[in-house]
Every structure is written in C-alpha cells, then in structure tokens.
C-alpha cells in the first residue's frame, strides 16, 4: 500500500489527463513573481488567463504571457467582461488565436452587481462554440435546469458557482450542487467562483465535484504562496474523502468508545 493515495489520482478534462484538480486564476497577485510561486506550489496544471485592450506603441513581447508559457501547463482563456453571446464568441475566437488552445472558460455576465452569469446567452454561446470545435468550460449558476441545457448543447464540462465571484462566501447552495452532480455523473463538474477558504474547496470535492477553480482566495490571502499550498492539500483531502465515502449522518449521538466493560457502570432495575 502506498503511503499517499492522493499522488495516484488522475482525472481527464478537455481531453487531457491531469494530476491536479485545482484550477487557478492568474489575476490579483501582489506581483508576477508571487503569482509564479503560488501557481508552482499549488501543483495546478490549469491556469486561467484573459484578453484585454492593448495600448499602441508597446513594442516587444508580453511578460505575463511569457511567464505563463514557461510553466508548460494548460491555459484556460476566459471571456470575462462579455455581456452577450456574440461578445463571448468573438472573445473566444480571439483567445484561440492568441493562446493557441481550443479551451475556453465561457463567461457571459448577466448582472453587473453580483456578476451572475446570463444563462440564456451562455447556452447560446456554448452551442455555437462547440460547433466551432471549442472545448467549452461554461461558468454558470447552481441551477440544475441551466446545467441540463448546457449538457443538451454538448458541454462535457459544467462549472457552477459556489457563490458570487470574488465573494469568498463558499458554497451557498450545497444541495443544488449535489443535485447537479447526481444528474450528471459522467460530466466533468468544477465549482467555479465564491471559494474563500481551503475548507470550501474540500467541501466541494467531498460533494463529488471533479475540481475547483479559484483565484481571489489565493491571490488575496495575506500569504498567497502559503495559501496556494493550503488549497493543494485541501483539494486532495476533499477528493480522498469523497473516494473513501463519508459516513451517514445520524440524528442522535452514538458513542465511539465501546460500551461493554464501561467502568463505574451500574445496572439499575
């Protein structure tokens, strides 16, 4: 028997077999060096990136992109900032050319206050992108019917939120996440957004989710590198816990120490 079962764990997503089930964002770090150290220590093999307007007259290469490329891991471009299917589709097409991958984290925002995804536009964009050969990682709410619609148009991966992006509130509706897991045992499910603490990631993994995607929880920690390590362990712990099978909850207390031979015990009546 191996000492560490977690080291044997692999999973497949988007046609790639990976060891790490932690997907990380690359934004909000105190410095590029800090981001680099955090990503490395996390063991993450998928890092999200984005596209933004470029200023004229900036010659040469792109330092950020050069760092990410040097890791030799998978990049997952997002369509953050899109408010319609058309904007998301165009952004995905641009990202495919720049980043050289057909993977896309599909984000179509429907409300600027809570950054809740627009389910109608997300499904519409997913359908088009899948037909164009993209591997779509759709960011969605924990709504089961939206998940069904995304599966109907061919999504093999679904990424329901834990809670609002950047809120750190954890899993708002674990029962909804469980329902999606039960409905889609064969799809790759990743909890994306709202994770604030390592224990939130563990909880998502214990529910049987295949992975977690997070950014702020690590980047905004007082020590992002240490927090990245904490999340690495938390995700592994949750996965192992899920595979091991948790005990059934009970309504009442049940002693774990044997009752036979209890000292100072007296039988009354």
């Amino acid at each position: 028997m191996t000492k560490y079962l977690a080291s044997n764990d692999t999973w497949e997503i988007g046609g790639k077999r990976l060891n790490s089930r932690l997907l990380m964002g690359s934004a909000l770090y105190p410095s590029p060096a800090n981001m680099e150290d955090a990503i490395k220590i996390s063991g993450s093999q998928i890092v999200t990136v984005s596209l933004r307007r470029q200023a004229a007259g900036e010659g040469g290469g792109n330092q950020f992109w050069d760092i990410i490329k040097s890791f030799g891991i998978e990049v997952l471009p997002n369509t953050a900032g899109s408010h319609s299917a058309k904007e998301a589709i165009t952004t995905a097409q641009m990202a495919r050319e720049v980043f050289g991958t057909n993977w896309v984290k599909l984000e179509v925002i429907g409300d600027q206050y809570n950054l809740q995804p627009d389910p109608f536009e997300t499904v519409k964009a997913a359908e088009v992108l899948i037909k164009e050969g993209f591997e779509v990682f759709p960011y969605t709410t924990d709504d089961l019917v939206v998940a069904k619609r995304l599966a109907d148009v061919g999504c093999k991966i679904i990424m329901p939120w834990g809670s609002m992006i950047g809120s750190g509130k954890g899993l708002m509706n674990p029962d909804n996440l469980i329902a999606i897991r039960k409905q889609f045992p064969d799809l790759q499910l990743v909890v994306d957004a709202g994770i604030g603490k390592p224990s939130h990631a563990t909880q998502a993994m214990e529910l049987g989710y295949d992975g977690v995607l997070l950014n702020s929880a690590i980047a905004l920690a007082q020590d992002p590198v240490k927090m990245a390590d904490a999340f690495r362990v938390a995700v592994e712990a949750g996965r192992l816990g899920y595979e091991a099978g948790t005990m059934k909850e009970r309504e009442f207390a049940s002693p774990s120490t044997p009752t036979i031979g209890t000292p100072f015990w007296h039988q009354f009546n």
């Binding site: 964002g25 690359s26 934004a27 909000l28 770090y29 981001m35 999200t48 990136v49 984005s50 596209l51 933004r52 307007r53 470029q54 792109n62 950020f64 992109w65 990410i68 471009p77 997002n78 953050a80 952004t91 641009m94 720049v98 980043f99 992006i165 950047g166 950014n215 702020s216």
Partner: peptide, 10 residues
C-alpha cells in the same frame, strides 16, 4: 477595431 492581448484572468 478591438486589439486585445494576454492579461491575467480569473
């Protein structure tokens, strides 16, 4: 015209 280049993303 939109001209976009890689940046950090979540």
């Amino acid at each position: 015209i939109e001209i976009l280049s890689p940046v950090q993303g979540g």
